[in-house]
Amino acid sequence: MTTPIVQAKDLARFYTVKGGLLSKPATVKALSGVDFDLQPGKTLAIVGESGCGKSTLARLITMIEEPTSGSLTINGVDIIPSQWSKMRETVQIVFQDPYSSLNPRQRIGQILQEPLIINRPQMTAADRETQARKMIEMVGLRPEHYDRYPHMFSGGQRQRIAIARALMLDPKVLVLDEPVSALDVSIQSQILNLLVDLQERLNLAYLFISHDLSVVRHFADDVIVMYLGRAVEKGPKEQLFAAPRHPYSKALLSTTPRADPDARKERIKLEGELPSPMNIPKGCAFAQRCWLVTDQCRQTLPELDDETHQVACLHPLF
């Protein structure tokens, strides 16, 4: 067994938000008690509804924010803020929106060299250019693209540029926050293939955030289903998709539309919405929407069990 490149233990992130004129400041529990190991060359997907804490987790892993509690180890190093600048090279991020994440006034060559200028000041200009040109080829762009500006590229090409930039410092981990959600199906498949290819060649580990379960099913090795800041189910993709153990995962899978008019549709309708993360109910956070709820669920907070395919539910489906 290889050692994990990222190890997260009991990660939590709370935000304090100012109340109204007369109310006290409130605490938003965006993330609580998240554990996982990410192996080199593997993809861990994070799924769940808007606001469940996916991007918050991404900000902790990429060292943009500090966890409120819990520990994070990357490449064997304990991640505390004094280590951030040294360790940031190891973890890079690619965002959903290929339009806003590139500086419109820089040519592609310059965009790609920027991380080297900042992090490898001793490198010569000629070496930087060589590296940038190599990367352009690696992500399937053409040599003449080196001198062009972002607005001259299509959405899919811009996402290639964003991936190329993220790879310039030779990271071990890529955090992909909805990397294909803004793209057409035909372009989406080009980018997913590129990511598969790069992972094989560079042994990259991916933390893959997506709301599209058909993409996750295709792409991930392991999956964490989050609900209101907590992992409610975690396991190998095949098992989780074939037999979800948490009622929420089952509902999520059943509501995902399938591109097959003949597919059997047994949708589980979830009423209501996520409770506010400022006012997380006692007991199981899913209790208000769960069709298996008992009195006990409203009292006891379920923890992930010890199986390989883990669930946090008092009355799991399996």
């Binding site: 035909s186 498949s189 080009q190 997913l192 293939n193 058909s214 295709h218 591109a259 097959d260």
Partner: peptide
């Protein structure tokens, strides 16, 4: 055939170009 849902292998069929 470019839909991940219909994929038969890890590499998806693509439509080259734009």
């Amino acid at each position: 055939s470019a839909l991940p849902e219909r994929a038969t292998s890890k590499i998806l069929p693509t439509i080259p170009g734009v």
